[in-house]
Design a protein around this nucleic acid. Sequence first.
DNA 1: AGAGGAGTTCAAAGCGCTTTGGCTGAAAAG
DNA 2: CTTTTCAGCCAAAGCGCTTTGAACTCCTCT
Lengths: 340, 340
Amino acid sequence: MNLKQLSDMLALSQTTVSRALNGYPEVSEETRRRVADAAKRHGYRPNPSARRLATGKAGMIGYVMPTGAAVDIDPHFVEFLSGLGDYARGHELDLVLSPAAADEEETTYRRVVANKQVDAVYVSSPRPADRRIILLNQLGIPYIVHGRSEGLDFDYAFLDIDNEAAFHDAARLLVQLGHTRIGLVNGDLGETFAILRERGARRALAASGLCLEEERIRSMAMTEENGFRAAMDLLRAKAPPTAILCSSLIMALGVVRAIRDLGLSVPGDVSVIAHDDVFPWLKPENFSVPLTTTRSSIRAAGQRIAERLAAKISGLENEPRGEVWPVDLVVRGSIAGAKT
Amino acid sequence: MNLKQLSDMLALSQTTVSRALNGYPEVSEETRRRVADAAKRHGYRPNPSARRLATGKAGMIGYVMPTGAAVDIDPHFVEFLSGLGDYARGHELDLVLSPAAADEEETTYRRVVANKQVDAVYVSSPRPADRRIILLNQLGIPYIVHGRSEGLDFDYAFLDIDNEAAFHDAARLLVQLGHTRIGLVNGDLGETFAILRERGARRALAASGLCLEEERIRSMAMTEENGFRAAMDLLRAKAPPTAILCSSLIMALGVVRAIRDLGLSVPGDVSVIAHDDVFPWLKPENFSVPLTTTRSSIRAAGQRIAERLAAKISGLENEPRGEVWPVDLVVRGSIAGAKT
DNA sequence: AGAGGAGTTCAAAGCGCTTTGGCTGAAAAG
DNA sequence: CTTTTCAGCCAAAGCGCTTTGAACTCCTCT
């Protein structure tokens, strides 16, 4: 069933039918009703390719997905995607994932934009002075960054959680509990969030005249194994930390395992606080010792970003606004006062 | 740069340019070269919407993504997606994710197909007699199922791992080690893979005159928490299992935690074998006791499915072929002979 | 009564590509 | 020398939609 058939059936022109369906004012109410009715009854749906060709609007959100043997998409992505989907579902928005090798990312963005395959894109895991953002900005397509970049000389739309405050507060809490040697098991410093978290922790310690020593910081891809290695490393040092801040639940699995392996206990010997992105399949309260976390639902972020992208597409959101969400500090059994 | 501009520039008709670019024979070699050259130099790329409108071919692979507050996409999906992307990347294929609530899945498939938004789709987590497969079959769009259904009266294309053999072999190994009371911590029985795994385990026990007791089976969503609960349940029974088969690494985390919480040990008191889909961020060899696993890379499956979908699209693969991959049984420290 | 609107509707021109059917000129066949 | 054949190229017709510009019908106003 296409527009022509439908309009023939109604003895109306394609123009009128199209306008009726798209809510243009110059159609009488009665006609509109008739058209809407017939359309529904016959299950008419405008062909998106045709519409796209005519309008340039795609009804899709794009994401350039880094791929390649060396690239591991991490499980956060799936939760984020769920959120995006939650919103998109109700709004007939589809997502287009364009896989690209690391060195083809820019080309891919260019292609996607030039082809008008999507109306807007989102960018994840931004790095400082991220080139993708610079590119998108000059290409002039609506976009939102999930996370933040730094060192860009223009404003851009983003949604981020307050990583700095989260780790600041977490570190401050540890300090208040009497800890002075605090370790940080962080994500890769190539990404802004990790930089901000380190900064937050550093600031909290500094406020009490303490210092986040370089040798108590580890930054690497957030796998269980790396968490384990990092913690092992830290805890075997001459003056091991009595508390560890950790950037992800998955790493925290490794951290806790390391602590155990060394015959130490949580929180008796080592207090642990981790960041929790809220996975349905791994919960901090279910760790052998319930984990204190800084918590922010990455799924909710996905929903919000979809919503804002939709707003941008329909022209409701224009200024390049940054949105920063506060992070909950959820105290559970994994922290205790420092042994004196 | 569109076709018209390019052809004007070359003083050729759009027809000829189009044909030259698409490899039709009725173009002289010299012309073809000239055209290809100019196209490359000016970065000409045919507008996909226009092409799609004209040909009906989309150059995209579709996936109807279950979404909704109640639906958790699990982390396996991301690994699978990576694989799909690995292949798609090199072949200019994009993926379209169409989010759909559980009760809108069929409608969404219909929409996607009717709109010719994609050339082929893949279906994941198939259930027995899966309605989606029936639907796709009659809609006549190329598709591949990742996993298997049962009870369908027609052949369909799928790629699955040999779940039954995997769990059969794992169970047999446990039996050979002297275990007679074996527990199964499985995924939701709504999905075929879980049914097959149970069948495999059952068969192995039966072969030795043993029985996989109903009360030693738990089937539920594969979260860490459910793994914990299930194992707790099993181990607190009057005649607790001395070995546990587990359907996922994430569940296995919970299983191991339960064993520990009860003051038992792996493999001293309880042997554990789990299925490993190969995540970069959580490895069985890094469990406190290295985990014996049945292993099959879900990422590799993604690559292969993309490859086969591409073959289907270009008409290279036609018969509805089923492909079943063997599963590795990797023995590590988590199993031991049964205490006598 | 005629001009000027307001309210509806329509025919036709794109959007950028593929593809059908036809045309041309030179080489092959008669 | 005429007829075929065929490689190579082209004009134009879609694909299904949106949008421009025009037209037509009623009213209202002067």
